[in-house]
């Protein structure tokens, strides 16, 4: 036996060193895989949410949006979810690189695979109906917010407020400053199934045609219609219980 091996064996015995149990390594390896899968799922959820937000955005309002088209894109592009996708993809990348064989994959191959899996996962979540549950949770807890100062500008044709009377093609809307506006919706583009319930908050884009009077070109619920439906259904379910 050579000198070093003797020294090492003596050290092993002196320090009572033993090979670590296999389950310790298995837990570590499976833990990394589990975290990587969670990161991939998060990326898929964020991709699906981004796609849903972009599909359901009010694209027809783009040329008429208060503050111009740049402001429209600033409100419409789901930057928050894009940041979420980037963070989840980076996290998944580093976790997968930490797996036993992860280092064998190059940057482009691994990052490309993660992105592809996230997009495929996001589309699958959208089509399976799992994502709407997340959307619902989001709507209930984090409803969309419109900058009221941008929409409370009747002189420029923008109005936000609550329907207080709904009679035929004229709505009476109480704006945020308390003034009452008569809004003619006869030529307005109205989303399908929008029913002008008293008490609903709406956004109007049109043209001022008299004192406290607007002719609407577009009228939209304050919260986009599909989200509003979702919230209504949720509230009805809660009342039923």
């Amino acid at each position: 036996m050579q000198k070093l091996s003797k020294k090492i064996l003596a050290e092993i015995k002196k320090q009572k060193i033993a090979p670590r149990e296999r389950w310790i390594f298995l837990i570590k390896n499976y833990g990394i895989w589990a975290l990587a899968i969670v990161a991939l799922l998060l990326a898929a959820v964020f991709v699906g949410t981004s796609i849903a937000d972009l599909l359901e955005a009010e694209w027809e309002l783009r040329p008429h949006f208060p503050g111009g088209q740049l402001n429209f894109f600033a409100h419409t592009i789901p930057f928050f979810w894009f940041v979420g996708i980037a963070a989840a993809v980076v996290l998944a990348f580093f976790l997968l690189r930490k797996t036993k064989r992860g280092y064998r994959f190059g940057l482009i191959a691994l990052a490309g695979s993660i992105l592809t899996a996230s997009i495929a996962g996001g589309v699958s979540l959208l089509s399976t109906g799992l994502l709407p549950k997340f959307q619902e949770f989001r709507m209930m807890n984090f409803p969309p917010h419109f900058d009221e100062s941008e929409w409370q500008n009747p002189d420029e044709g923008f109005l936000i407020g609550e329907i207080i009377i709904s009679e035929g093609v004229v709505l009476s809307i109480s704006s945020l400053d308390g003034s009452i506006w008569e809004v003619d919706i006869s030529d307005a583009k109205i989303p399908p199934q929008f029913d002008f319930v008293v008490g609903d908050r709406v956004r109007v884009i049109g043209e001022k045609n008299g004192i406290n009077s607007l002719e609407a070109e577009f009228i939209r619920p304050e919260i986009p219609e599909h989200m509003r439906e979702m919230m209504r259904e949720r509230k009805m379910q809660m009342h039923a219980y």
Partner: peptide
Amino acid sequence: QNVFLKAYQNLR
């Protein structure tokens, strides 16, 4: 020596 001790601990 450290290399061999680490390797021994991580043999599994």
